[in-house]
Design a protein around this nucleic acid. Structure first.
Length: 662
DNA sequence: ATAGGGTTAG
């Protein structure tokens, strides 16, 4: 390394000035061996006793090399140490999140005499450690010292007091400090916004954010955007729009502001907005960093934006950002959700380090396709690596069991989650178990399971039971489930449709009609089924009986041809259909133009032989379309990857990964 | 030679 080479050179680099410069270079490069050599040289040349600056620089450089004991040793061996020495070491400790040690060091300053009294640099650091370790009592004491010394007029100090109170669970005390400030700058407001956000007072954070923007005395900055972000989970549409307006009006829009805005869209499920914003960011020539891409990739997966996802993968390769677990995990998630299990697996296999998130991601990718055995193998493999599965890892493996119908294995995992890993099951785990039991036909057991739950069953838990009742035509328990659901979510279309399907199968047409009229009186409409496919980077959407596409005529002709061919292979439209999503009124005519079928015909026309057909839809696919898709995959020799509302159907040569169990 | 607010997954 050239640092070492310049060390061997005599003067001028060997002189004190050159050596100090070298110390800074070691700090920047975090190169400990060279730093030790320079340190030795400084000692040899007797430069250190005379130069406090040199010793402060050494402390910083050792800290940058993560050699904190060495940094501390320099401080201890300096008889003429001053407050600055402590401040620099405190800074190193807080940066390394060693908050207890930082507070011990802070406490030791009192014993050092007046030259080492804490000052306006010291307090923010000490308070940061209080905030991080939740040391409210010490924080209050420090606040008292600050007030006694009159240091609360210093903005840096005041901001750290605000932050300390907010993060120690005292947002009102934080606000009082903020309120009593004589002068405020943008950081004062940011500290208060972030304070409310971290105390969980999201609405107050947004209100004070709006107040700040309304004052128009100071421009919001990247810190403002980042501060309001944690308050924006589950945000109101108008608040998101407001933040976007602020973002658009910012004079300097740095990377952090872009990332915060992207994140706000992402955490609110506005995946399309996030994707659009990212496209604009690229147009504006703003260079994305790891975080930008790790935020946008899951959005690509959610909306199956495969070409953008691949494009982002190219950016990652070009910028040589991997290996990086954050990005690799996000890439896997994107590929898996875009219907490319193979690419997801390639990313997983190429990783040099994997954490629980990586494993969970790949387990879930196999699980939602019905590849239960591989999902379980991966889960066991993860355990074999000594990784502790967490709550979400169990959701993935339980969901895998439920998609594959592995009743006993699923029960075993559910038991071991609590007994062996002491993880308290959440609603998601119960949903998996109800789904697993119910679809396996154990409807009463599933119902008893719900009744015995220690937490209040949510909508999804009852929804899983209702779905199982539809499959197994259990009207009694189905009604109980529907009753709970209608009280919880009176406006959710899907559950009315499920109930009416149950009645239809039992031939109770009067009840079907009454469910319909309830829906009509409440103004609830059936969500129209839609299928999306991507050709190039263009997304095409199809609805039932859609004739709006320019290629409509060709699509219908193709579909007719396909249906004619598969009819000879046992495809009998409408027979199975009524068993699942389709209502009795939907005759063969309707079924044959379901959006999935139109999408399949469209892709067949527009792509070369062998290209996989990837479809994303907003409902569960019906068994008629499922049957048709399997046969079409066989006669056209195409893979069909159908992503429906809760799983993937990966169809190869007439066989679906779901094993027709869904 | 030193300090404040801030974004990262399944």
């Amino acid at each position: 390394m050239n640092l070492s080479r310049s060390l061997l050179r005599p003067s001028p680099a060997g002189g004190q000035h050159g050596l100090l410069h070298l110390v800074d270079s070691c700090r920047a490069a975090a190169h400990l061996p060279t730093l030790r050599a320079v340190h030795a040289r400084l000692l040899l040349l007797q430069h250190l006793p005379s130069s406090a600056v040199a010793r402060v620089k050494l402390i910083q450089a050792y800290a940058a090399c993560s050699a904190l004991p060495a940094a501390r040793a320099v401080l201890t061996s300096s008889p003429d140490r001053t407050t600055v020495f402590f401040n620099v070491l405190l800074r190193a400790l807080t940066a390394a999140s060693l908050h207890r040690e930082a507070l011990l060091l802070f406490a030791s300053m009192r014993l050092q005499g007046p030259s080492c009294s804490p000052d306006h640099y010291t307090y923010p650091l000490a308070l940061k450690s209080c905030a991080a370790s939740g040391s409210l009592r010490l924080g209050v004491q420090i606040h008292a010292s600050i007030a006694r010394l009159g240091l609360d007029a210093n903005l840096f100090v005041a901001h750290s007091v605000i932050s300390m109170y907010a993060r120690c669970g005292r947002p009102n005390d934080a606000y009082q400090v903020f309120d009593e400030m004589q002068h405020r700058d943008v950081v004062s407001w940011n500290a208060m916004i972030s304070g409310f956000a971290h105390a969980g007072l999201f609405q107050r954070a947004v209100v004070i954010f709006r107040e700040f923007v309304g004052l128009q005395c100071t421009q919001p900055d990247a810190g403002t955007m980042a501060s309001v972000l944690p308050a924006m989970g589950n945000a109101k549409a108008e608040d998101i729009t407001f933040v976007r307006e602020v973002f658009d009006k910012m004079r300097f829009r740095g990377l952090i502001s872009w990332n915060a805005m992207l994140s706000i869209y992402a955490i609110n499920g506005l995946h399309v907005k996030a994707v659009e914003l990212f496209v604009r960011m690229e147009k504006d020539g703003v260079e994305p960093d790891r975080m930008t891409l790790a935020t946008v990739l899951p959005c690509c997966g959610q909306v199956s934006a495969f070409s953008l996802g691949k494009h982002i993968h190219e950016i990652i390769k070009r910028k040589r950002m991997c290996p990086n677990m954050l990005l690799e995990n996000a890439l896997m998630d994107m590929y898996a959700n875009c219907g490319c299990l193979k690419d997801a697996r390639e990313v997983f296999d190429a990783m040099s380090l994997r954490d629980v998130v990586s494993w969970t991601s790949i387990i879930s990718a196999y699980g939602v396709r019905g590849h239960g055995t591989e999902a379980i193998n991966l889960f066991e493999n993860m355990l074999g690596q000594g990784l502790e599965p967490d709550s979400i890892a169990f959701v993935a493996v339980l969901a895998a069991c439920s998609h594959a119908g592995f009743l006993d294995v699923g029960k075993r995992y559910f038991d071991c989650m609590t007994s062996r890993y002491q993880i308290t099951p959440k609603a998601e785990h119960y949903t998996c178990m109800v789904d697993l039991l119910g679809r396996a036909g154990c409807i009463s057991e599933a119902y008893d399971f719900i009744l015995a739950m220690p937490i209040k069953p949510n909508e999804r838990v009852w929804g899983a039971l209702l779905g199982a009742c539809r499959i197994h035509s259990n009207m009694d328990i189905g009604l109980l489930a529907a009753d709970s659901l209608f009280r919880m979510v009176p406006d959710q279309t899907g559950y009315y449709v499920l109930l009416s399907n149950i009645y239809a199968r039992a031939g109770r047409w009067a009840d079907v009609t009454s469910v319909r009229s309830v829906m009509a009186s409440k103004g609830i409409k059936k969500l129209p089924g839609a299928s999306n496919v991507e050709i190039g980077d263009q997304v095409h959407t199809f609805h039932v009986g859609d004739r709006s596409h320019p290629q409509s005529e060709m699509i219908y002709k193709k579909l007719e041809e396909l249906l004619g061919r598969i009819r000879g292979m046992g495809y009998n439209p409408g027979v199975e259909g009524t068993l699942h999503d389709v209502e009795e009124e939907e005759k063969e005519g309707h079924l044959s133009v379901h959006s999935e079928k139109l999408a399949i015909a469209f892709v067949l026309i527009n792509t070369s032989p062998g290209t996989p057909i990837r479809i994303t839809m907003n409902l569960r696919t019906c068994s008629d379309c499922h049957h048709a898709a399997k046969l079409i995959s066989a006669i056209t020799d195409r893979e069909i990857i159908l992503k429906d509302i809760n799983r993937f159907h990966h169809i190869v040569q007439g066989v679906c990964s779901c094993g027709d169990y869904w």
